[in-house]
């Protein structure tokens, strides 16, 4: 489904701030895989996801989604096959527009937009029934501006928008990091539910080791722009936090120092 080959990305090349974010990164993901991506600050997780999404072009390497080489496609063209949720709850929605208007924007992802109405009444019914499944009471507030929703509600809505068109690839970039633990739990539960229901191929970046172990069927750990661990199948199911920390030490030759990860 997703093939990433020899990806390199360097920021601020040739300056004192030079940062090699990705170094020869390769990854193959099968259709239906739910891959959690874990790593410390500056490991390159977000850069990796942003390269796949087309936010910036890689310096080298190629990205193939479902047999199509998208390496040179601009962000908005790749969006046709991708659903994305960001760390910042503000990032995924248009705050001055209504819930239904946001959903309608997402509902037309990958389609040509013309002079037809931006929302039809038939869609409204669909949105209502979908919002009902979130169990947040949003189905009665279709025209409420998204800016008035809480962070958790916004992330749940963004998640719904991301899966609305059954994307080939769902990219989640620490989408629960800005939420309080209880809300984060809820949004993660919703994530599991939606991924299963739509049978989505998913990449979920997280800094929380427990979440990375608990969710998905495959775990990769990034360090210093590379993938240093790739755990799947039975091994992934039996994984514990201690085992993961040990394996990190052996793989990277460094002490485990993900402050954020340990604390959470």
């Amino acid at each position: 489904m997703l093939i990433v080959n020899g990806l390199y990305k360097t920021f601020n090349a040739g300056t004192v701030n030079q940062k090699e974010a990705l170094k020869n990164l390769s990854l193959h993901i099968e259709k239906g895989d739910f891959v959690t991506v874990i790593g410390g600050n500056g490991a390159g997780k977000s850069t990796f996801l942003n390269c796949i999404a087309g936010v910036y072009p890689p310096d080298q390497g190629c990205i193939i989604i479902d047999g199509i080489n998208v390496t040179k496609l601009p962000e908005h063209k790749r969006a046709a096959v991708m659903g994305r949720v960001f760390q910042d709850p503000m990032m995924g929605t248009a705050s001055d527009m209504g819930i239904e208007e946001n959903l309608a924007l997402a509902y037309r992802r990958g389609q040509r937009r013309g002079l037809k109405w931006g929302i039809t009444s038939r869609e409204r019914e669909l949105y209502k029934s979908l919002l009902k499944t979130l169990d947040l009471g949003l189905e009665d507030r279709l025209s409420t501006k998204v800016g008035l929703l809480s962070g958790g509600q916004r992330q749940a809505l963004t998640l719904l928008m991301a899966v609305l068109k059954k994307p080939k690839l769902l990219l989640l970039d620490e989408h629960t990091a800005a939420l309080d633990p209880r809300t984060a739990e809820k949004v993660l539960g919703l994530t599991d539910h939606l991924v299963k229901e739509y049978n989505l191929t998913t990449l979920m970046v997280t800094h929380n080791m427990r979440d990375a172990i608990k969710h998905g069927n495959r775990l990769i750990m990034m360090h210093d722009g590379r993938i240093i661990l790739d755990i799947r199948g039975e091994e992934k199911r039996k994984l514990t936090v201690e085992a993961l920390i040990n394996r990190f030490g052996r793989a990277s030759g460094e002490d485990f120092a993900f402050d954020r990860a340990l604390l959470s």
């Binding site: 991708m82 248009a94 037309r108």
Partner: peptide, 23 residues
């Protein structure tokens, strides 16, 4: 109120989101 019009309104609001929706 049209599809294009909605896309323009969203652009001023949150261009990142708009690109993520394929616009």
């Amino acid at each position: 109120g049209t599809e294009i019009g909605c896309a323009i309104r969203a652009t001023g609001n949150n261009p990142n989101m708009v690109r993520a929706q394929g616009i």
